[in-house]
Design a protein around this nucleic acid. Structure first.
Lengths: 133, 133
DNA sequence: CCTAAAAATGTTATGTTATTACATATCAAT
DNA sequence: ATTGATATGTAATAACATAACATTTTTAGG
């Protein structure tokens, strides 16, 4: 039942940032994370951004481009395969991460059709979630 | 053959910003636009951001969230209906705007399925365009 | 274990993107 | 003409992100 890909062991700052994101109930900006971690000795934005870069590389964290904010991956193993989409509630700020295979495949076909070598996709849906409607 | 929706007449600053974006061969940041327009009397970012806000409201300009940059709409009439997606070349910076109906409908179904009231979608594909491969 | 290379961290400064706040001017409809 | 709404001008500041450089920690090979 354990994840079949072994992420590297997280370094101190990476772990701290990851923990903050996992505990958060909404996406956090890098500076919000910094504020939370001042007590643990963080002093500068770069400490956060460097940790975030690594965590994103590991697939443990995603950036929401339309919010300039970050969320922990909710797919226990989001390795290699990208998330398909995020649904972002404008009311309660909740975010849910979808792993829709058909969407991914549709986007892949779209790109193929234009001879576009697809590297990375950003799909962010804004609206109101079930609870807030 | 004319567009069936009448966009409002553009105000001076809106027209200036729109012209810059239409002439550009790549997405431009607000500050790049500001630099171009200094000769026409622009002095402050807000002059650009305000014009951009209106142009986006009119559907004449889109923001690329993953680049913090703006492009003129290439659908002569992108009124009401959103663009489905943007393909952004990392090599030559060219952007093409897709109006894929099936993608839009797929995203709509995804949202419906989660009882998510969809307001706006951001779909940005990064990679290498046909010419740059 | 020791050491050299690589990775991670600390710190300051700066660059880039976007908004707040407030004043003034223009436009459109009575 | 007066009024209310929209657009503009300007300064200051907030919010997001990276460059450059010094130091420490980790890792892998001898």
């Amino acid at each position: 039942m354990s994840s079949h890909a072994h992420h590297p062991v997280l370094k101190k700052n990476q772990k701290l940032v990851q923990d903050v994101l996992v505990s958060a109930c909404a996406p956090l900006s890098a500076y919000s994370i910094l504020d939370v971690l001042r007590d643990q000795g963080f002093r500068a934005p770069l400490q956060v951004y460097r940790a975030l870069d690594k965590l994103m590389e590991f697939g443990l964290v995603h950036k929401l481009e339309s919010l300039n904010a970050f969320v922990a991956c909710t797919h226990d193993a989001c390795e290699a395969n990208e998330p398909a989409a995020f649904m972002i509630c404008e009311e309660c700020e909740s975010v849910s991460e979808l792993g829709d295979t058909r969407l991914a495949s549709h986007l892949g076909k779209l790109a193929d059709h234009e001879n576009f070598a697809l590297k990375h996709t950003t799909v962010e849906l804004h609206g109101r979630c079930k609870n807030c409607s």
